[in-house]
Nucleic acid binder design. Structure first.
Lengths: 234, 234, 234, 234
DNA sequence: GATGAATGAGGATTCATTCAT
DNA sequence: TATGAATGAATCCTCATTCAT
């Protein structure tokens, strides 16, 4: 009870020891190679368990078991269950940024809306299909007992980005309106993703189209007010 | 679907079958009356706890406490936690049907789309604001560890109804398409409702408008293909 | 995690329900008869375990096991380990007051000091021999990680009483001095009791004499300053 | 009694026996030097943690962390938690002997009692203020779950010394009596020290005086029986 | 019907200790 | 030596559910 957690903050990764010299910086990394692998294992296991059970019902013991380690090992790397979710969110977010984020972050806002949506949603959908835990975490603190809002990086990072994009798209919109539209779009995308993930094959493709359609139709009038030439989708 | 008093422990003896003789029918009725009150109490408590904690984190003890009864009493009316959610769903659904369901069930599909949406969504929103647990249950078995799909009356009843309405609206659509569109619409309404419930006052009103807008714009083209004259919303 | 403890505050005993009418007050007591017994069992078990292991090392599971019940049962009556200690302290204190407290509370301060000490220490020693947990709890929050000071009824009640007695005995002493002397006397009595409890038979008797002697000699000069004729002990 | 580096894991090989040849003796000495430093670090950390948490609640991980080393390193020098306490006791005892022990060991028993007490208690108090862990360890195995009696060097060494001193002071006393008186005096000094350590400034000084007073008054009559002229304290 | 006691497996988390590097 | 990873039993405590009254 008194002494607090053994675990160092895991998010600092192998850079825990402040690189005194570039030559030495390899040394501590060696030591933590196993640990690094364990963290990856644990996060993967957590992703699986979170997907299967949801955050609340996921037990740290189950995560440890899934990762093939003892409960104690888990707590050597994470101080508690929430930290696992937070770190998992962080990793996924980073992976997202690394893989598809470039496109996502540097959008050509002169594109017609349908192409713009393709360039935003396609990577997002692909990434979610590959990392279903992302979708779970995207929902954030909607349901109480979940991750505290402030720590919910995935949800807030994406929401903010959506808002930014809309800001570029609709420069005349007032902030409050923008925020509302962003929330709405994000909410719709999230629930659309759920539908998409819940189906496979052609059905999944159809839902993808449907999601793009609904977002397109929602935004098209706003977009049109402001701007450019015609776009494909009806 | 209604599991309530029927599910009582089997040792209840001869009172199981109601009204064995007209003379005796007064006694059991009073008994049942008290039972109904208990059930109502418990369901109200459950609604509160489910809203505050989510289904998974809600404990039957907490529900009993909130209802001001002992855990044993709770289990006299419900065989397990899921049954509470199922019955709560059933009651809410029935209440929904009683209060706003008439409009909902007998829609004038000749109305312009925007008015149609008003007549569907306004009662639904009102009802959800008054019964926030409804929204919680509407989400159904999206997250694992929740209510098993087959028992999730609220979700499936509403989804089916949405499908029916769309069927009337778009008589030429193929079933698969219809089902998909219904799923999409329902998903969007659900997440819109979440946003609505999460805000108050003017902000809430604004989100209501936004929800109607997005659904309108999504359906308008389909609706137009099939049918009638112009409608207000852009 | 969210809903807090099931357990009602156990210290209120069977009077939990506010006696609406004297006739009804017997009813709820019936219900809790078993519980009352359990609480007694648990406290007795706790006394044993606390004595054998000390507060910190005592585990609630061990207490439950010693009481012959499951861990869950323990937590139906006590919200946590500290509450057990607090309640045990309370019960012992009350038992102390009921059995020997009368003498203790209404001292004839005109007695010669040695007799006064006999009349204070003899019951205290007897009581501690019969309830060795009392001594454990008397030590209170000396060691960190123990019971929080504010909740340590045994320690503070006795200390206050010692101060009161000394106040009557030495009416001219200043409060700060009084407090110091009381602390000292109490500390000495506590460690003397430990010695007494650690021995048996004649050895124990000898330590009892020794404890009385040291306290006597400590107080005699102060006492003499103020007051009365000679007393026996050298 | 010193368990420190001797207790290392047996796989240490030939370095076990020191100084096999003069040529090699430099190497191990440096090794030992580093080891001593580690041990000192660990013991200092242990002292801090023991003081803050008590022996039972102190965790070896916490000690290692406080010492800035890994748990593995700790176990390279100490086979288990108790050994740390034992060794800490040993070191403190030795430090005590080195710093104030000379006076303590070669008392001028012809001094008047009050001066004698000053010359014993003043260094003891000073040392305890500087090394609060000493007080913690002095209490030894009073509370079960603590250090096993046989290994409790601090407690027994001091007790024996108190007995010796009293033996010199009261040469006519019988051994059993002597032992009892020593136990009593030691117990009182220990609890007095606790009070002293729990206060600061003037209040601490006052408690110091009080402790000296109570011991003085306890011993004076015995001392007088045997011996010498009058002494200051009343 | 109603109560509150009882259960015991399971939850998160810690800890003394060991092991591989 | 030193590290940090690993362990698994044990910690406190909760929960869905059952039982005796």
């Amino acid at each position: 009870m008194p002494i607090g957690p053994e675990a160092r903050a895991p998010e600092q990764g192998p850079t825990g020891a402040p690189a005194e010299s570039p030559a030495r910086s390899a040394q501590p990394r060696r030591r933590q190679a196993r640990g690094e692998r364990r963290i990856a294992q644990l996060l993967e296991a957590a992703a699986g368990v979170f997907c299967r059970c949801g955050y609340t019902a996921a037990s740290t013991n189950a995560i440890a078991r899934e990762a093939g380690v003892s409960p104690g090992t888990l707590y050597q790397f994470f101080p508690n269950k929430e930290a696992i979710a937070v770190e998992l969110g962080g990793q996924l977010l980073q992976r997202w940024r690394e893989s598809h984020g470039a496109v996502f972050d540097m959008l050509d806002t002169t594109l017609p809306l349908d192409r713009l949506l393709d360039s935003v949603l396609d990577p997002l959908i692909t990434f979610n299909c590959e990392n279903p835990a992302f979708a779970v975490l995207m929902h954030g603190s909607e349901i109480p007992g979940r991750i505290s809002e402030e720590h919910d990086a995935v949800h807030s990072a994406l929401l903010i980005r959506v808002e930014q994009i809309l800001g570029e798209l609709l420069p005349t919109a007032r902030p409050a309106e923008l925020n509302r539209t962003a929330s709405m779009v994000f909410a719709v995308v999230k629930s659309g993703l759920e539908l998409i993930l819940a189906h496979e094959g052609e059905e999944r493709e159809a839902f993808i189209t449907e999601l793009k359609t609904i977002v397109y139709r929602y935004l098209a009038p706003l977009y049109a007010e402001v701007s450019r030439g015609a776009t494909r989708r009806p």
